[in-house]
Amino acid sequence: NKVIDASAMGSMARFINHSCSPNCHTEKWTVGAETRIGIMASDNIPKGAEVTYNYQFESFGGMKHKCLCGAPNCSG
């Protein structure tokens, strides 16, 4: 029941792009009393490859965003 939004607080990870066929995944950790999200490689990522993960984006009351990632399994 949490929404992650890096617009107010975030690291360089906020620039990782979405893909419906990502090479990374997220893991939720609790450190002390704080929730942390780690981005982990799902497999070896070749040098120079784009780092991506599936945002599982949901719009709340606004305009829906069409996915244009171009992956073979793209949800569109």
Rank of each mutant, 00 (worst) to 15 (best):
F15C: 11
F15G: 04
F15L: 10
F15P: 01
I16H: 00
I16G: 00
I16P: 01
I16D: 05
N17A: 01
N17T: 00
N17E: 00
N17R: 01
H18A: 05
H18E: 05
H18P: 03
S19H: 03
S19I: 07
S19K: 05
S19P: 02
S19V: 03
S19M: 09
C20R: 04
C20G: 01
C20T: 03
C20K: 04
C20P: 01
S21K: 09
S21W: 02
S21D: 13
P22S: 12
P22V: 15
N23D: 12
N23P: 07
N23R: 05
N23V: 10
C24G: 05
C24A: 11
H25N: 08
H25V: 10
H25P: 02
H25I: 10
H25Y: 13
T26R: 06
T26Q: 14
T26C: 13
T26I: 08
E27R: 13
E27I: 14
E27N: 11
E27Y: 03
E27A: 15
K28P: 09
K28F: 08
K28D: 08
W29E: 14
W29N: 15
W29C: 14
T30V: 11
T30W: 03
T30R: 00
T30H: 01
T30P: 00
T30N: 04
T30K: 01
T30G: 01
T30C: 03
V31N: 09
V31T: 12
V31F: 03
V31P: 01
V31L: 10
V31G: 03
V31H: 04
G32W: 08
G32F: 01
G32T: 07
A33W: 15
A33I: 15
A33C: 13
A33N: 14
E34D: 13
E34Q: 11
E34Y: 06
T35I: 08
T35H: 03
R36D: 10
R36F: 08
R36Q: 14
R36E: 06
I37S: 10
I37V: 13
I37M: 11
I37W: 00
G38A: 14
G38F: 10
I39N: 11
I39G: 06
M40Q: 11
M40G: 12
M40A: 15
M40L: 14
M40R: 15
A41F: 04
S42W: 09
S42N: 15
S42Q: 14
S42Y: 02
S42V: 13
S42A: 15
S42G: 15
S42F: 00
D43T: 14
D43S: 15
N44W: 07
N44L: 06
N44R: 05
I45N: 05
I45A: 02
I45W: 01
I45S: 04
I45C: 10
I45M: 07
I45P: 06
P46Y: 10
P46E: 12
P46T: 07
P46D: 13
P46M: 08
K47V: 13
K47R: 08
K47P: 02
K47Y: 08
K47A: 15
G48A: 10
G48E: 12
G48H: 02
G48M: 04
A49K: 00
A49C: 02
A49R: 03
A49I: 00
